[in-house]
Amino acid sequence: MLINTENGTVELAAFNTFLQRRMLLAHLQQTDFYKSRYHNMWDVKTGYFWYYFNAISVECSQLSFQLCFLEDRLESIHMNTWEEKDAKTWDEWTEEKEMQVFYRNNKFLSKILEIPPTRKSKTPYPQCTFHFSWGNVWSVYDPRSASSIMGISYNEEVTPIK
């Protein structure tokens, strides 16, 4: 299982690594996943930092991760499948090819989550969402960025009123 549907934790078994909401960056940096797959970081200059990782093999797919941290805590996870036939340059890119990535991402999520999507929509752009009590797993094709991506967004934590 890659994504635990009970709590949204991502298990990267080959790296003995668990990614979870509010995970500390210092904890991530101690993992085999970080040590072997870390590629790059982007400081957005707003308190957010994106960490990029080289692809790993999951369920017979090549899967890359982009982790978004607010200060030093994990806020969201983006992922993408990749195949050799995917466009590598703008000259090779077409919307049709990118939609194939979107469909492949949807199929990948349905397979690993073992359920059909909760919601599919074509407007304002093609998207597929799986709703859980802790948040959403989603896939989208965004024509503005000419890209397809999937990810995990966690619900805001609610502090009980005392």
Rank of each mutant, 00 (worst) to 15 (best):
T9P: 01
T31R: 01
T5Y: 00
N7Y: 00
T9R: 08
D32N: 03
L12D: 05
G8F: 02
L2V: 13
N16R: 10
L12F: 09
F18P: 06
L2C: 03
L2N: 05
M23S: 12
F15H: 08
I3M: 02
T31Q: 02
T31K: 03
N16M: 05
G8T: 07
Q30K: 15
R21N: 13
N4C: 10
L12Y: 02
N7H: 05
V10T: 08
E11Y: 06
Q29E: 15
Q29Y: 03
N7G: 07
F18L: 11
L12C: 10
A13Y: 03
L25H: 05
F18I: 09
E11S: 14
L12H: 05
Q29T: 08
R22A: 13
T5R: 12
M23G: 11
E11I: 13
A14G: 15
T17E: 03
Q20I: 05
H27L: 10
L24I: 02
I3S: 05
R21G: 08
R22Q: 14
E11R: 11
E6S: 13
N7A: 07
F15A: 04
A14V: 04
A26Y: 03
Q29F: 02
T9Q: 09
T17D: 01
T17M: 02
I3G: 05
T5P: 12
R21F: 05
Q20Y: 15
F18Q: 15
L2S: 06
Q30P: 10
H27Y: 08
E11L: 13
A26K: 15
Q29W: 03
R22N: 15
F18S: 14
Q20C: 12
E6Q: 14
A14C: 06
A26T: 15
N4S: 14
A13Q: 13
R21W: 00
N4W: 00
T5F: 00
T17R: 01
N7P: 09
N7D: 15
T5N: 10
T17W: 00
G8I: 06
V10S: 04
M23W: 04
T5V: 12
Q30T: 12
F18W: 04
